[in-house]
């Protein structure tokens, strides 16, 4: 069992100012997850009539991307390839002080305490993060073979959970890793080719418009990513962007007719 001192960011709502507040976490089991440790703190706070700490979480198995805390200045804490919900207290030791903050980025405004608004990510996807195939249009799945190496690489990119750790860890709050993962996933597959140019142009434009910063190659995102998505996808996106900027042709506006 361990005793820890927590300093947690408390902020009533988007309008109010926040501050770090100290809490003592007693008798913490090393087998607890980080969020279970916070659950216990919250149960105590409620019993004392104090407002519990608000934080986003849902699946608690590292796949939904809801949770995300800055723990001692590191997105998702000290363990590599691990979301906050999958971080266990055995990564800390008795007597440690732990500083817990929300993701900090202009494009992720705080809603309350440790909860932030990440809807800017959805808007980046809206700008082109899909194959425009309506239900019912599909040919037989095996009529379009995909080389295994491409499929595997696409899967590496597609494993992004949209948690926002890449943005939070970046000194520029850039969303390049998130955006490039979707562009890389679809760009590696034959199904993604017809819209490849519009996709990269529109998604990058939206990313800039949402207030995310630029990439200056710190690679903090790669280190923080719980799904170990590499910055190779950023390089790939930059190549695609340049190529698309030089060669993209707007579709002809002429209508059909019978």
């Amino acid at each position: 069992m361990m005793n820890l001192v927590l300093y947690v960011w408390r902020q009533k709502n988007a309008q109010s100012q926040g501050q770090m507040v100290r809490y003592d976490a007693k008798n913490v089991s090393p087998d607890m997850s980080f969020l279970e440790m916070l659950d216990v703190i919250n149960e105590e706070l409620i019993s004392k009539g104090q407002d519990p700490i608000a934080f986003d979480h849902d699946c608690r198995e590292g796949i939904c991307g809801s949770c995300g805390l800055m723990i001692n200045g590191q997105a998702h804490g000290p363990k590599k390839a691990t979301t906050t919900c999958q971080l266990h207290m055995r990564s800390f030791k008795d007597g440690d002080s732990i500083y817990i903050e929300p993701w900090r980025a202009k494009a992720f405004p705080v809603i309350k305490d440790l909860v932030v608004d990440r809807s800017s990510f959805d808007r980046i996807i809206q700008a082109g993060g899909y194959v425009s195939v309506s239900t019912g249009n599909a040919p037989d799945a095996n009529s379009t073979p995909v080389p295994k190496t491409n499929a595997d690489k696409a899967m590496d990119a597609a494993s992004c959970i949209g948690c926002g750790a890449c943005v939070a860890s970046c000194p520029n709050s850039s969303a390049m890793l998130f955006t490039s993962a979707k562009i890389g996933h679809l760009g590696l597959l034959p199904q993604g080719q017809p819209e490849r140019k519009e996709r990269v142009l529109n998604m990058v434009t939206t990313m800039d418009k949402e207030g995310f910063g630029s990439c200056t190659n710190h690679r903090e995102c790669e280190a923080a990513c719980p799904k170990e998505i590499t910055v190779d996808f950023i390089a790939r996106m930059n190549r695609d962007y340049l190529w698309a900027s030089l060669t993209y042709q707007k579709p002809s506006a002429r209508g059909g007719g019978e």
């Binding site: 195939v133 599909a138 073979p145 295994k148 499929a151 199904q191």
Partner: peptide, 18 residues
């Protein structure tokens, strides 16, 4: 068929088939 067309990266054999 629908999911493959959307670009869902299903596991594949070396032939490129599912």
């Amino acid at each position: 068929d629908q999911c493959a067309a959307q670009g869902v990266p299903f596991a594949r054999e070396y032939s490129g088939l599912l």
